[in-house]
């Protein structure tokens, strides 16, 4: 039997991307054991009230009509030879952070949004900036951190993994954007974070899937998403970056309704309420 399975695996073509192209949602149905957790139980009626969400990105354009005011804006800066985090009014270097914050606002309208700008500083490496911003955000005990970023720099891996574990135990959920092609990047590959890729079913903008074939664990809509951009404008964009803040917003709603949830309970609630996960109804495992 094992031999047959090995033959089957050997015959599988290497995957070009992590996405679920060519597979219907029924084809990726998963049978799960556990308490029935519905989306309505998990976050129905919740608005993200009293939940603090931090967007670690390019900064945020506060006051954008699709975003409104934010609770705090910070930035990683070079100071005395090191990197530190300070309050800033520098805004958004490219629009991306504003876009992410806008999706979170749309999904969880009453959450408190904070921004840490880790992009745009001249000649400072992205990996070091992201690490400094993430370390600061975890120390602030935010409930949710949106990280539509990753680094390919292998030498940051151990420190990122330690930070992700620390966040996990502090009940700070890191929602991290996955690379879609099999690029080695972090921290989305760590099991301590909620990693997000994209589905492209625009008819189901509020549904998300659990991936039967991780490392990417969840897929949310990442195609033609309406976004706030710079100077009060809007664009539509596609990419995993924009699926991630939707999941961060869902996490904020769940935590506003179930504030004592640990990170592992939250991830379990996401898993059991995913559109393709059927609790206790059987089917192929």
């Amino acid at each position: 039997m094992d031999l047959v399975m090995d033959d089957v695996r050997a015959a599988e073509r290497p995957r070009l991307t992590w996405r679920l192209y060519g597979r219907s949602w029924d084809e990726v149905a998963l049978a799960a054991d556990g308490e029935p957790v519905t989306a309505d139980w998990a976050w129905g009626g919740a608005t993200g009230s009293k939940v603090r969400v931090c967007v670690v990105d390019s900064g945020v354009e506060a006051g954008h009509p699709l975003l409104g005011q934010i609770a705090g804006a910070y930035g990683v800066v070079s100071r005395d030879g090191g990197l530190s985090v300070e309050e800033t009014d520098a805004g958004d270097a490219c629009g991306h952070g504003t876009a992410c914050a806008g999706i979170i606002r749309r999904t969880a309208p009453d959450c408190e949004i904070y921004s840490v700008r880790v992009l745009g500083e001249r000649a400072t490496g992205t990996g070091a900036m992201m690490l400094a911003g993430l370390r600061w955000a975890i120390a602030q005990n935010f409930d949710v951190i949106n990280l539509s970023l990753s680094t390919t720099r292998v030498r940051f891996t151990d420190e990122l993994r330690a930070l992700a574990d620390e966040a996990y135990f502090r009940r700070t959920v890191i929602v991290a954007s996955a690379h879609n092609t099999p690029v080695e990047s972090y921290p989305w590959r760590f099991s301590s974070v909620v990693s997000v890729g994209s589905h492209h079913d625009e008819e189901q903008p509020e549904s998300f899937l659990y991936n039967p074939d991780p490392p990417v664990e969840f897929f949310a809509l990442g195609q033609n998403v309406l976004l706030p951009w710079l100077n009060g404008g809007t664009i539509r964009a596609s990419g995993n970056s924009f699926a991630t803040p939707y999941m961060a917003g869902v996490c904020a709603r769940i935590l506003s309704k179930h504030p004592r949830m640990t990170t592992f309970q939250l991830k379990n609630a996401l898993y059991l309420s995913a559109a393709n996960v059927n609790v206790g109804i059987g089917g192929p495992s």
Partner: peptide, 27 residues
């Protein structure tokens, strides 16, 4: 390299597509 969509892509290594740019006052 610290601004704009190309700047974001080079900083993050993530691909993206942006559309409806005529509605963006900046871009």
């Amino acid at each position: 390299a610290g601004s704009g969509i190309a700047g974001w892509v080079v900083a993050t290594g993530e691909p993206m597509l942006v559309d409806d740019l005529t509605h963006s006052a900046a871009f």
